[in-house]
């Protein structure tokens, strides 16, 4: 998956020439290309072949017509959308804050963002189970303070899945948005200020449109990664929240229906590619 961030045009020609002409960059990219062909394109093609095994599209027909699977697809997209929205609402102010503080504070802030990113998803999800569980930290505290008699059902529902997924994905939103925000020329904000715009107008007409590419890149990244989430909905959803990856796993592990699992995977892949294509066509809002 490629997320395109606006970047200054690198001096490609010069570097390519120094590395030995047109073939140079290709040679440099070769190991990665081989890696991707063997470990990504190969398996995807294998899935494609598996999904049409028997020479018909029956598996696809089932995937896109059966109400059960349509519901799961719908639920998957809905959760991904909620998580994306939550990431934008929570992440945008944090990214902005990081652009306004001193270098030291920003470094500490980034550490706080990156350390969770480098922690296993499994660990972080279990941590949420410890926090949200029946005898988890929150319920225990509320009971000790006498605020509740019976534990609240904080786990195994949509909010818990959204919380867990947003926690995992938030850094992936903050980083691209931050990278766009730091490049916004402060003089433009000053100019808008001087020309008579209010704080709200400066944000709506200048700052937000200028940072929109970052929001789009970060949002697309979060949405696409969220579509394929497996561990978090499995553990925090407790079987009640089912996303498409859980269904695919179930088809493979329990029902041993590789053909249908492959068809579902291909549909998910196509949906992902479609979203990627759509997001690259979205125009920045004009002030």
């Amino acid at each position: 998956m490629s997320i395109s961030l606006p970047a200054d045009e690198p001096p490609r020609a010069g570097i390519a020439a120094r590395l030995g002409g047109g073939a140079g960059p290709f040679v440099l990219g070769l190991p990665a290309l081989v890696f991707l062909l063997l470990l990504f394109v190969g398996p995807v093609l294998r899935l494609l072949v598996l999904s049409v095994e028997g020479g018909d599209l029956a598996a696809y027909e089932k995937a896109v017509t059966d109400g059960l699977y349509l519901t799961v697809f719908w639920e998957t997209f809905r959760i991904a959308a909620i998580v994306t929205a939550a990431s934008i609402v929570l992440g945008y102010p944090v990214a902005y804050w990081l652009t306004t503080v001193s270098r030291t504070t920003a470094a500490i802030g980034f550490a706080c963002i990156l350390v969770p990113l480098m922690t296993s998803v499994l660990v972080r999800t279990y941590a949420w189970m410890v926090i949200l569980g029946r005898n988890g930290i929150i319920n225990r505290a509320l009971r000790d303070w006498g605020l509740i008699d019976a534990p609240l059902p904080l786990l195994h529902n949509l909010p818990s899945v959204v919380i867990g997924m947003t926690h995992v994905l938030l850094p992936m939103f903050i980083l691209p948005v931050y990278s766009v925000m730091v490049r916004v020329d402060r003089e433009l904000l000053r100019a808008a200020d001087g020309l008579g715009a209010s704080g709200g107008q400066i944000f709506a007409r200048v700052y937000f449109p200028l940072t929109w590419p970052g929001v789009l890149a970060g949002g697309t990244l979060v949405f696409i990664v969220a579509l394929g989430f497996y561990i978090t909905p499995a553990l925090l959803g407790g079987g009640r929240i089912i996303m498409i990856a859980n269904v695919i796993e179930n088809q493979v592990q329990t029902l041993l229906d590789w053909r249908f699992a492959s068809a579902l995977s291909m549909v998910l892949l196509l949906a992902t590619l479609a979203i990627q294509a759509a997001s690259s066509r979205v125009q920045a809002p004009r002030g």
Binding site: D185, A191, A192, D193, L195, G287
Partner: peptide, 18 residues
Amino acid sequence: PGRRNIGMVFQNYALFPH
């Protein structure tokens, strides 16, 4: 600044690129 009704021209133009 915005209430002073001043027309300001900056060294780097400060045109809104979008």
